[in-house]
Amino acid sequence: MHVPDGFISAPWSLATGVVAAGAVALALRGARRELDDRTAPLAGLVATFVFAGQMVNFPVAAGTSGHLLGGALAAVLVGPWTATLCLTVVLLVQALLFADGGLTALGTNVILMGVIGVWVGYAVFRLTARAMTAAATRHRPLVPLAAGVGAFVSVPAAAAGFALLFAVGGTAPIALSTLLSAMVGVHLAIGVGEAVITALVVGSVLAVRPDLVHGARGLLPTRTLVSHAEAVS
């Protein structure tokens, strides 16, 4: 879902660039609360994994593919502010080195994947996790499940973001309803793949280092987290 140069008009590209820069500035402040000596190394790893994951297109229908966006995944693992930073670095390197996403569209792509994808994914994850926690007795499997739900919603949300942005700043005449339904329709299918990958990866990290998973804080019994950290040190 990397928007190339030319889709969004110059003034709107400038506007998205300004908004994206503001979001990154806020994220730099917010990430202070999420990152410490223990969790900082995970952030680099998450961004690297998202970069790798975005290279793997999976088929969703005849002649159409999708790939991991990674916003919800990063938000659950390292926190939403840090996730916005991770996605921004990924999109910057993709645009600069590989012209994967246009340079003038960098702000647009940061908003779609690094802001909408991350924050919608994280919000839905939190709401789902809270609802599930209230209903269940075993909490550990809930984190990857809720992460999957957040990931699923994040993809059509980013797709809808593109349709809305194109309606105001796009360079071709198309009815919003037409573009919106086409974008959301395809990306609901891609969201299923996003959900599966996200749930599997979050589950795997939880199995190895539950203490590092940002989204699991307050959901898993603290006894597990403390005893593990002390057992290895």
């Binding site: 879902m1 990397h2 928007v3 190339p4 140069d5 030319g6 889709f7 290279m55 793997v56 297109n57 999976f58 088929p59 969703v60 002649g63 159409t64 593919s65 999708g66 790939h67 012209a99 246009g102 340079l103 797709a159 593109f162 194109f166 796009g170 360079t171 071709a172 198309i174 037409t178 573009l179 086409a182 974008m183 395809v186 990306h187 299918a189 891609i190």
Partner: peptide
């Protein structure tokens, strides 16, 4: 083993006459 088919955005913009607006960078 990745699919080489166009992704969701590419597919939709091709189908709706937006793709030709892309400036090939």
């Amino acid at each position: 083993f990745a699919s080489s088919a166009p992704d969701g955005l590419e597919r939709v913009t091709e189908d709706h006459g937006i793709a030709e607006q892309a400036v090939g960078s």
